[in-house]
């Protein structure tokens, strides 16, 4: 499945896929002479092969900055972000990201939207189509391949967006609140669907979310970020079975314990910053 040399895993000591080392990102002040604005600082963490890590934190804690740095759209002011031991210096096709907005192109059918990411590569149209169809099957939306985005529901659109994200065979999948725009029921169904797809494919995943129980339900490990400027203040090993079944997971006593713990961690932090 590795189509390109850059997609080949480089053996590294700890088999971590994604690594942040003392990363800080500062933006110049709004007005001339104003002190620079620090979005994140002292960020060090790793995401291992096939691991599902969630980052929770208040809004404005610099999560978009973090995602942009992984995707190569932005660069750290200090420290390094590396993928498979190679420093990220620009956009690369080994990262797949997905936002709250589905970002489907309205003028394309679902199938052609899934092919979109593959069009950056010099791929045979036939092979591209085959790849996209396989991904639609994996995300269970084959029946909507020829529909346009306005003809399908919000949940189906997010499924299509996941299919598009997975079609490029990313080394790491970044999910930025992919469920937060959905209604409560669709959200649960989609969380289960995503969890199953991700667990079966053994994907390395980083999920950013506001929703504490979502983080507990879906991940192996949770990193708690604080705002102003964003840094990691807590790390929790979830240690629950059934990663492919978030609903079963949330029913366990340990899950509610972690949620309570997270709630506390974030609450205290908010008070200190207020």
């Amino acid at each position: 499945m590795f189509l390109y040399e850059q997609d080949l895993p480089v053996p590294s000591a700890k088999s971590n896929v994604l690594r942040f080392l003392d990363v800080a990102r500062r933006f110049p002040g709004r007005t001339a002479g104003a002190p620079p604005f620090t979005a994140v600082r002292d960020l060090s963490f790793e995401v291992n092969e096939s691991e599902f890590v969630s980052i929770v934190g208040p809004s404005g804690c610099g999560k978009s900055t973090l995602l942009n740095m992984i995707a190569g759209l932005d660069h750290p002011s200090e420290g390094t972000v590396s993928l498979h031991g190679v420093e990220v210096v620009g956009p690369n096709s080994s990262v797949g990201f997905m936002l709250q907005k589905d970002l489907l192109l309205p003028w394309r059918t679902v199938l052609h939207n899934v092919e979109f990411g593959l069009e950056a590569r010099n791929m045979e149209p036939g092979a591209r189509r085959e790849r996209a169809l396989k991904e639609l099957k994996r995300c269970r939306i084959t029946g909507f391949a020829d529909r346009f985005p306005y003809q399908i529901s919000g949940g189906q659109r997010q499924r299509a967006a996941l299919a598009r994200t997975l079609a490029i065979d990313p080394d790491v999948v970044l999910l930025d609140e992919p469920f937060s725009a959905l209604d409560a029921q669709t959200k649960i169904v989609l969380q289960k669907s995503f969890a199953g797809t991700i667990a079966n494919a053994g994907l390395t995943t980083l999920l950013i979310t506001h929703d504490l129980s979502e983080a507990v339900a879906m991940s192996d490990r949770i990193l708690v970020m604080s705002d102003g400027p964003g840094r990691i203040v807590d790390e929790i090993e979830v240690g629950l079975p059934d990663r492919d079944n978030p609903i079963a997971r949330l029913a366990t006593p340990r899950a509610s314990e972690i949620v309570k713990h997270l709630f506390h961690a974030l609450h205290i932090d908010n008070r200190l910053d207020a």
């Binding site: 995707a71 190569g72 956009p91 690369n92 990201f97 936002l99 970002l103 192109l105 003028w107 950056a120």
Partner: peptide, 23 residues
């Protein structure tokens, strides 16, 4: 965000124009 998506896919500027901006 659409442009950033295309950029993250390592799409060339010409392709971004033809496949995203123009439509």
């Amino acid at each position: 965000d659409l442009i950033n998506l295309a950029r993250a896919y390592n799409m060339s500027k010409t392709k971004i124009f033809l496949k995203v901006m123009l439509p």
